[in-house]
Design a protein around this nucleic acid. Structure first.
Lengths: 155, 155
DNA sequence: CCCGGAAAGGTCAAAAAAAGTCAAAAAACA
DNA sequence: TGTTTTTTGACTTTTTTTGACCTTTCCGGG
């Protein structure tokens, strides 16, 4: 018998495949009820099986009417992209490095000139000065979110 | 099922769109009756979905015959955009406020859906968590920078 | 003219309805 | 047996919903 966590993982992935969708919206409480487990078990599944580096992205809303959405990024088979996201997760990035990276994305046509300018203005030293010595960490987290968003956008 | 608050929001916006008007006049009590909820629920909707930075302005009259009016604001030229930047750029900004403001720029076509998603992802709590206490200051600076860039890009 | 009641809308805080965090306990594994 | 993964539950945070009480305005009678 597989673990509960794996069965929940399978359930969610099957659900997406069946509906031929790259995203599902679920209620944590309902799902916990289906598997008669504590709600926090669901968080464990999300944290261990649906991480960004694994090609999934989760967004959620708390409060009355809250729920969460699991989005399958169009890279589940693109190891290079996964590695890139993993590399930038929880790391640091200077402005120069980030700028160079964005420049490559621009050259490759992943982003256009306007997007390049917007992103650059937001990761500039000026914009992030209030973050003090944690500036490079914030910048890395921002770049990671940009990558995920780009993956979500092009489909 | 979406929340009551969201359904009321949609109802009001649809109403404006349908009539192709930039303002509607409503009675709090009537609206509450339509959705069979307490009247103060309407205030909650106005406070969370129709704030100035979200591009709406609400005026109301109490007393017998009282009612409220929701006016949709629009940015029509460069100067208004500049005024908006001035009005919105404080030294701190919560994610909620920023999101509301960006939603407005999206509704008005100042930015497109992709730009909205990119910017939102970069100012999210997740992206800025490393900034800790100073998160709201960083966000304010980022918003200011991005607005200036949009202006330079001659929207 | 003044007053009091009725007919609005406003405020604020508590309750309810979600989801998130974290660390201890249990189970599986090597 | 020691380590890693999974499971559980107590506590936290966020968002929405509700209700009791407050304020403003209008109108009619004295």
């Amino acid at each position: 018998m597989s673990t509960l966590a794996s069965r929940i993982e399978r359930y969610i992935k099957d659900m997406m495949d069946a509906a031929d969708l790259n995203s599902v919206e679920l209620k944590r409480k309902d799902l916990a009820e289906v598997f008669s487990c504590v709600p926090s078990q669901i968080n464990y599944v999300l944290e261990t099986r649906f991480r960004d580096e694994q090609g999934y992205h989760v967004v959620s809303r708390r409060g009355a009417g809250g729920c969460f959405q699991i989005i399958r990024l169009e890279v589940t088979d693109d190891q290079e992209m996964k590695d890139l996201i993993a590399a930038v997760s929880g790391s640091e990035m200077s402005f120069r490095t980030a700028e160079g990276f964005l420049g490559r994305l621009l050259e490759e046509g992943v982003i256009n000139r306007g997007e390049y300018m917007l992103i650059t203005s937001m990761i500039s030293k000026e914009a992030l000065s209030a973050a003090g010595e944690r500036q490079d960490q914030v910048r890395a987290a921002m770049i990671k979110n940009v990558l995920i968003t780009l993956l979500r956008m092009d489909y």
